[in-house]
């Protein structure tokens, strides 16, 4: 779960529950790899291939709206 973990070969599966996302941007701001972006006031996955599955977005999402597998 630490920042800077080596990238896994398999692409992550990032799920966003847009009904629950309130657009606080915490996940976007603290993603170490800039994987996420805002679109229409909700988070969206912009660069999935950069995801290292560090899980920090899932950890800090106050709305239970983003998960990483």
């Amino acid at each position: 779960m630490a920042e800077g973990q080596p990238a896994s070969k398999e692409l992550a599966i990032i799920r966003v529950n847009v009904e629950w996302c309130k657009g606080c941007e915490i996940c976007v701001a603290f993603c170490p790899k800039d994987v996420l972006e805002m679109e229409g006031g909700k988070v969206t996955v912009a660069r999935l291939e950069e995801c290292t599955k560090c899980m920090l977005c899932e950890l800090r999402c106050p709305d239970f709206a983003i998960t990483v597998e």
């Binding site: 941007e25 899980m55 950890l59 999402c61 106050p62 709305d63 597998e69």
Partner: peptide, 29 residues
């Protein structure tokens, strides 16, 4: 992925806390 949903009352979501309120993070912890 941590399965939070088995521990919550899903019908009460989305919760009432404002955008960016930290309380959801405390609940998850």
């Amino acid at each position: 992925m941590f399965d939070y949903l088995t521990y919550v009352r899903e019908g009460n979501f989305p919760h009432i806390w404002c955008s960016g309120c930290g309380h959801g993070i405390v609940l998850k912890s």
